[in-house]
Amino acid sequence: MLELKQVSKRYGRKTILNDFNLTVNQGEILAIVGPSGAGKTTLLRCISGLERIDSGEIQLDGKPFDPYINRDNDSVTGVVFQDFQLFPNLNVLENITLAPMLALKKDKDAARKQALDLLKRLGLDGKEQLYPYQLSGGQKQRVALARALAMQPRILCYDEPTSALDPDLRQEVEKMILGLKTDGMTQLVVTHDLDFAKQIADNIKRVEAL
């Protein structure tokens, strides 16, 4: 269980999050919805350790947890970025195996086997030798997901998972997210699309611009 207690985040004089509270239960999907500029992405960046919170507390299973510091020690959060941010110089397989090999010190064969399993599950078998520029948007997203999953995170975060894709791919994303839910994955989805959020989420948290 991940909890945010009265978390605040400012950039200079601009307050983005003010005494923000949030609870994500194990195995559930929480959608965070709100208009652009409401701090949804900032929230996700704080949870994934890309930004440091100014005040408040983040707790993991009831214990204080600082993602900004903890980032290097433990795979708590995985992130699927809005624009995927695959590494263009690495092929699909290398994109997925790089971090498990470098950060988790997995040996090459184990990392490779895990990556191929993930690709198969996500319907990307046969694509492992392709480079990101050879993939469609939906495929890139699934590779980004596989890459995040390969680090075995406890919580998976998505930043606007539908916004960079064709509208008819929305159902694919829904299927993908709900499929992971059946595996027990805790997921946090930032989106401005309320309908999408209603389709997938157990709980919806609305944020408003301050």
Binding site: V79, A99, L102
Partner: peptide, 11 residues
């Protein structure tokens, strides 16, 4: 974003 995605992957 390349640095950030590397960072969340703990590189």
């Amino acid at each position: 974003g390349q640095y950030e995605s590397a960072r969340v992957l703990r590189l």
